[in-house]
């Protein structure tokens, strides 16, 4: 129950502090992190993170800017070596099962003027499978077509990516991930700056993937979306503040602890209340502001 005037928060199934376990699906953890500390240069972005993510989880990673959300994804994806601690992904070190992992960067990390079409971007998801010197086979073209259909972007397949709206751009990158047929999705802000329809559509797709046993880990700034559409959530601010079922974890006290008081609670709406993150939307590495729909034509 979320809300300023609601009853005392329920804590069943919620882990507060370190040693967070996100259990979902049938069993084996897809990701296991123990005492992980990571950062860039002199800056520590993640500290002493213990986290276990069960296969089949649909997990929202929530926290203020600079809380280490993107860093968490990069460590799991094998893009950033942790300073200390151990990380296990699909039973091996990060990167060992790279073809079974799909990583989607934040929209503003992408050069949208790059001369590639929608179809070409989605085909990139197949490249590690196709292998050097080979051309895409019929199965690869079929996988691309399926992925485009799944995110409802078939008609736009020959357009250059810069000509797409913000929502369409997120759809295309999710399609690329789907085309690679991964077991783990690592999505950095997949529903940031998109229209409501796109958000619902993308969440439907992710939900379906999780139901098939795929593990979905997505950072988000959208607390309402996290509460309503994700199964699990982990609150981080360098350290893990809490982890558990999304509807329980998005509790005012825990959020206040995560955001340091930067959470606005708006009571009186259906389902209790809506939480707004008033943190300015900034990339964790600093500088660029998030892409918003209205800028995308």
């Amino acid at each position: 129950m979320i809300g300023a005037s609601g009853p005392a928060p329920a804590f069943g199934g919620v882990t507060v502090g370190d040693g967070a376990v996100i259990a979902a699906g049938s069993g084996r953890p897809a990701v296991r992190m123990q005492g992980v500390t990571a950062g860039y240069g002199a800056r520590i972005a993640l500290e002493a993170v213990d986290l276990e993510i069960g296969a089949g989880s649909l997990l929202a990673v929530i926290g203020p800017n600079g809380a280490g959300k993107s860093t968490l994804l990069k460590v799991i994806g094998g893009l950033l070596e942790p300073r200390s601690g151990t990380v296990e992904v699909l039973g091996g070190p990060p990167g060992a099962e790279a073809r079974r992992v799909a990583y989607v960067p934040q929209a503003e990390a992408v050069d949208w003027q790059f001369p590639v079409t929608v179809e070409e971007v989605v085909m990139m998801g197949r490249i590690p499978r196709i292998g050097i010197l080979r051309r895409p086979a019929a199965a690869d073209h079929a996988a691309v077509a399926d992925a485009l259909a799944t995110v409802n972007m078939t008609e736009a397949s020959r357009r250059q990516i810069g000509a797409l709206s913000g929502g369409q751009r997120r759809r295309v990158f999710l399609a690329r991930a789907i085309a690679s047929d991964p077991d783990v999705y690592l999505l950095d802000e997949p529903v940031t700056g998109v229209d409501a329809t796109t958000q619902e559509d993308l969440m439907d797709v992710l939900e379906a993937e999780a139901r098939q046993g795929k593990t979905v880990v997505a950072t988000t700034h959208d607390l309402a979306c996290a509460a309503h559409r994700f199964q699990q959530a982990v609150l981080i601010n360098r350290r893990i503040v809490a982890a558990g079922p999304a509807n329980l974890i998005l509790d005012q006290r825990l959020l206040a602890e995560t955001y340091g008081g930067h959470v606005l609670v708006v009571p009186g709406l259906p389902n209790g209340s809506v939480l707004l993150d008033d943190a300015h939307h900034h990339d964790e590495s600093g500088g660029e502001s998030h892409f918003h729909e209205e800028l995308g034509r």
Partner: peptide
């Protein structure tokens, strides 16, 4: 050319997928 294109366009995505 396929691999160079992917690595040029999205180095993080390409690296995470094993290139």
């Amino acid at each position: 050319r396929k691999e160079l294109l992917y690595a040029t366009f999205d180095p993080a995505g390409a690296a995470a997928s094993g290139l």
